[in-house]
């Protein structure tokens, strides 16, 4: 266990009756890291997050927040925790300022810091001009941002956000993404979302949960490597015989796609692109396209979550 891991989850289980919603989930999040938490609906994402924030008691396993065991010392552990549930918990009858001040007090902030904390959180979440308005009268996007402000107001070490960008317009989404990136400088962030590009844009690590089990836990770099497939698409105006192409170092197989386009399968570590381009110029093949093929995160997501279902069905 590293000393700088702010969240440490060990062998977490959760049963609802006999149904096992979360099975043997273990992971760590270090300071300054954004962890993307993916999974289809009903896979156990929200259940896991509720267990991390003390809203739900795990059936077995341990959760350590900032070095404090959540189950043994819940009060102390929760001071280091900010949580935005799927539905932001807002008191509609309060104004934004009142609500945030209340949240700051709940987070055990000293009373002389509260005013500053409220204005700072408002500034960070773009709520500067709605401080005096009633929460119930604000739009969904604003309410979502108040939810985020509420989670970060007491500058917790760990911020857990359950689908934070739902209901926001594209500009707000960009602002919130930037905010999350900024947050990760001092905090650990766990982010649950359905929006896959979002994960690629802001997360350092990704884990995918399916049917209560972690099916993937990898860094974004590792994921990018996974996404690279050992194929190249080549477009040639005057293609040579496939057999000639096969002589290029690393090329294993050639597939003709028509219109002069070909798919080359190659040895994963040996990119034939450079050699191919050279040969194409020398041989006058009329090269007009050369792209490595990639899987999208979506493909991986579908692969991982689908495989499981088919396996289990079989």
């Amino acid at each position: 266990m590293e000393t700088d891991s702010l969240i440490d989850v060990q062998h977490l289980y959760r049963y609802y009756g006999t149904h096992c919603a979360v099975r043997d989930v273990s992971f760590q999040v270090r300071r300054g890291e954004v962890l993307g938490f993916l999974g289809p609906n009903g896979a156990g994402k929200s259940t896991t997050m509720q267990m991390l924030t003390g809203n739900l008691a795990p059936s077995a396993g341990s959760v350590t927040i900032n070095g404090v065991d959540l189950l043994e010392h819940p009060k102390q552990a929760k001071t280091a925790l900010g949580y935005l549930p799927e539905q932001p918990p807002l008191y509609r009858e309060l104004t934004v300022d009142e609500f945030l001040a209340y949240c700051a007090r709940l987070g055990r902030m000293a009373s002389n810091e509260i005013l500053r904390a409220v204005s700072y959180a408002k500034e960070r979440c773009g709520l500067g001009d709605v401080g005096a308005r009633l929460i119930g009268n604000l739009s969904k996007g604003y309410q979502q941002r108040i939810g985020i402000a509420q989670a970060i107001i007491h500058t917790p070490a760990v911020v857990i956000l359950d689908e934070p960008t739902v209901g926001l317009d594209p500009i707000q989404i960009r602002e919130i993404r930037k905010l999350i990136r900024d947050l990760s400088a001092e905090h650990s962030v766990i982010l649950s979302t359905h929006i896959l590009p979002e994960v690629q844009a802001i997360c350092d690590r990704v884990q995918i949960i399916n049917k209560g089990e972690l099916v993937l836990a990898d860094s974004i770099d590792g994921l990018t490597r996974r996404m690279q497939q050992a194929t190249l698409i080549v477009g040639l105006h005057r293609p040579p015989e496939p057999a000639t192409l096969k002589t290029i170092a690393g090329v294993l197989e050639v597939e003709t796609l028509g219109d002069g386009r070909l798919r080359l399968h190659h040895v994963p570590d040996q990119h034939p692109a450079e050699a191919l381009a050279e040969r194409a110029v020398n041989g006058g093949w009329g090269l007009f396209e050369l792209t490595p093929e990639r899987l999208s995160l979506e493909d991986i997501f579908v692969q991982l979550t689908d495989n499981e279902t088919t396996e289990e069905a079989a």
Binding site: Q50, G54, Q76, K78, Q87, R92, C103, L106, G107, Q150
Partner: peptide, 14 residues
């Protein structure tokens, strides 16, 4: 009903 209970439950209050 309004699902605001998580605010209190995840706050450092017993």
């Amino acid at each position: 009903r309004n699902r605001t209970l998580p605010l209190l439950l995840s706050a450092p209050a017993s």
